[in-house]
């Protein structure tokens, strides 16, 4: 474990128990986030990346439940040495302690800013509320902070926006407002849940630059979730590749892109169009489709679609996430023999 990490997720398990069966949405995920670092979590839809961050924030709703593992987080108020971790997994998700961390030390930038803002409350109302939840200040002062932050993220004439409603703003502007909201209490960790999927490409680039800049100025760490490897290449320092609730591979962005170890990572990278690709040549795709969560295969979750599938091995045992080389870790029997204990 990285001793100066501000967040260390260890073997996190989140399940959804329903009449039809139990879904292991997150099944033993581990990764670290160092201060000031941008960690990108990448995977197809349904791979459990969103549930992972909801678990960290402890806002997973019934029938979902964090059932195991540790979420070690170092809030601001504690010292900087490695011992003052709070295990968020042990806290009551609705309790006071967790609530003072949420929105204060860890902030969220949601996927769809339109849906994440209430249509019947003004932007100002929702910003001020976010400040006053964590700071004992009056409305005027809260409004000043809100306007200040909106200026910082490049919202034009922020004073007027305070009395506007979400549906009166453009998509890019709404996302900026969400970023301003996340920054209100100067969090140590910002979680961005596919913040660029709902906006067009040019605005996307602006938002990414903005996030990068803010991360430097505020010395925050960022967990960045996306299914877009191109975005990961632009913003992330470290990459976590997820598939069906498990981490397939993790490591620094350069290593992952230039020396992918896991067949899934290779397949993902292979499906990105590049300038060097011959035109009119079909892009390689990953064969088959993601299995239904109730029908998870035994063994390595990726084996039914894997090009390097080893019968009798991959479908029997689940490979553990093991360190290979200096920075990279991978869970694949092609690279090590360590299996998950059952």
């Amino acid at each position: 474990m990285n001793t100066n990490a501000i967040l260390s997720v260890r073997n996190l398990k989140t399940r959804f128990t329903m009449d039809e069966g139990t879904t292991k949405a997150v099944d033993g995920v581990s990764f670290d986030v160092a201060p000031g670092q941008v960690v990108g979590i990448v995977g197809e839809s349904g791979c459990g990346k969103s549930v992972t961050i909801k678990s960290i924030l402890r806002i997973v709703q019934k029938p979902g439940e964090v059932v195991g593992g540790e979420i070690l987080f170092r809030p601001q108020r504690h010292g900087e040495n490695g011992t003052d971790f709070v295990d968020l997994a042990k806290l009551d998700g609705r309790g006071k302690e967790m609530r003072t961390i949420r929105g204060n030390d860890i902030a969220l930038i949601p996927q769809e800013p339109m849906a994440a803002l209430s249509p019947v409350h003004t932007i100002g109302n929702q910003l001020v509320e976010a400040v006053q939840l964590h700071r004992k200040i009056n409305k005027r002062q809260a409004e000043e902070i809100a306007i200040e932050r909106m200026k910082e993220v490049g919202v034009p004439s922020p004073e007027e926006r305070m009395s506007a409603y979400s549906w009166e703003l453009s998509g890019g502007l709404r996302q900026r407002v969400m970023i301003a909201m996340a920054l209100l209490c100067s969090p140590r960790l910002l979680i961005a849940d596919e913040p660029t999927t709902a906006i067009d490409v040019t605005t996307q680039a602006q938002v990414l630059n903005l996030l990068r800049g803010l991360q430097k100025n505020h010395d925050m760490a960022i967990i960045f979730i996306t299914h877009d490897l191109g975005v990961i290449a632009q913003v992330a320092d470290d990459v976590v590749v997820m598939y069906l609730g498990r981490v397939m591979e993790t490591g620094p962005v350069d290593d992952i892109f230039h020396n992918p170890l896991h067949p899934y990572t290779k397949a993902l990278l292979g499906s990105i169009p590049s300038i060097h690709t011959t035109s009119r040549e079909p892009l390689p795709t990953i064969e088959g489709s993601i299995p239904h969560p109730f029908n998870r295969p035994a063994g390595c979750p990726f084996f039914p679609r894997c090009a390097a599938y080893m019968p009798g091995k991959c479908d029997r045992q689940t490979p553990k996430l093991e360190r290979i080389g200096e920075h990279q870790s991978v869970s694949c029997f092609l690279h090590h023999e360590v299996a998950e204990e059952i």
Partner: peptide, 20 residues
């Protein structure tokens, strides 16, 4: 999603249910 967002802000459950 706005419920999730309100929770992520650290709002107490009952207050956010009534407000949103």
């Amino acid at each position: 999603p706005y419920m999730e967002m309100a929770r992520a802000k650290g709002m107490p459950e009952w207050r956010l249910i009534i407000k949103y």
